[in-house]
Design a protein around this nucleic acid. Structure first.
Lengths: 219, 219
DNA sequence: ACCTGAACACCGTTCAAGT
DNA sequence: ACCTGAACACCGTTCAAGT
């Protein structure tokens, strides 16, 4: 049945189906043939809408990136980083199987660049010199990506008894799967809070004159 | 030429060749057929030494994990985390193409568990309650994995002029490829220093009595 | 313009066969 | 025990053909 009068596919439908497939069966299950099957279509048809598989993955990554909130910088650099970090983290934790997709190849994705630009602007706008703004944005991103792609507690074997003899220090609550998610989110919050607390004196040590100079040079 | 008197392959030779291949051509180039080619052998031969491709990748990950130094905790929790974080980061940055391999599936790898156990023991031994030890170890791991798998500056297009119009805030030094590596390592150091500085008052707020109690309950 | 069938060059893995 | 050839069920991608 070639060339139906109303198209069977669209870029959005393909992208959404790809995310569903990743959520349900993991990144390993996302093949062009498998994706086509889900859309009641043949694999070759997808190439009428995306040039290749990577482009489909980019569309998924952009979709998730657009959920990230960078509006908090209106209330200062600290509130901005908190809002950004938490919403970024939440977007990835909402689709854990897709997190590595979002983490990869960030540098040439449209919506990632828009996000990075907003964050950098927010930091420079509240007095951080551009070079610090770059490093601080990178730091928070490291935490988000690390937390989303390798949650600490998950991945341990379900049968914790295996560990008892060889790894005495690890036999703690964090090996109990039921606590895993809570410990992961608490760890992210602790790290974010710790980092922001550690940056506070650095920001304070910038004199009013240095802050103004940084703001002017930043644009 | 089946069954030579002295074996052509060994687990170590296969694992080392896999790392070389990943370093030279990236993770995408590591196929069993390609790996076998490099060892002057057929793909099926590899299955006499490893049950599957994942096991080869685990061997590579374990090799890199064994380079990580957890001895610093003898000089206190802060020195321990610095030594651990830096050596972990350095091990992954030395093989950037392999970093995602090390990041994945950590929970059931022998050498990762030994490392995590040493870190946890070092933190609890210097007064952190077990639950905090878990979260702090997770935090530093997040930074290391995030920094190693998605270096901030890399991945931007070489031609930075593309960004000028649309992303005014991003047109800074960090878009210059020559500075990328320096900014990445500086960012990691800033994040680690910030996090440790932020944790200091938390550790100090634990009274001597609470510290003793934590140490006793931690084993 | 949009979908299909068939083909190409790849994969990971298995297994009987050789020594 | 260790290596091979051949096969299986998969991949991503291309392209002529159909309407």
């Amino acid at each position: 049945m070639p060339r139906p009068k109303s198209p069977l596919l669209s870029r959005e439908r393909i992208r959404d189906a790809a995310l569903e497939l990743i959520d349900a069966e993991g990144i390993g299950a996302l093949s062009m043939r498998n994706l086509a099957l889900r859309l009641d279509v043949k694999a070759a048809s997808l190439y009428s809408h995306y040039p290749n598989k990577d482009a489909v993955l980019d569309a998924v990554a952009n979709l998730l990136t657009r959920q990230v909130d960078t509006s908090g910088f209106e209330r200062g650099w600290r509130a901005g980083l908190e809002t950004w970090g938490r919403s970024y983290h939440a977007a990835l934790r909402g689709h854990p199987n897709a997190a590595p997709v979002v983490a990869a190849g960030t540098g040439r994705r449209e919506d990632f660049l828009a996000m990075a630009d907003a964050v950098h602007g927010g930091l420079v706008g509240d007095g951080w010199p551009p070079r610090y703004a770059t490093m601080i944005a990178a730091s928070v991103k490291y935490l988000v990506i690390g937390a989303a792609t390798t949650p600490f507690a998950s991945g341990f074997a379900d049968d914790t008894r295996v560990y008892f003899e060889r790894y005495p220090n690890l036999v703690q609550a964090h090996l109990i799967p039921a606590h895993a998610e809570e410990i992961d989110s608490d760890s992210f919050e602790l790290a974010l809070a710790g980092l922001l607390a550690g940056l506070e004196p650095l920001h304070a040590s910038l004199t009013a004159g240095e802050r103004r100079g940084a703001r002017e040079a930043g644009r």
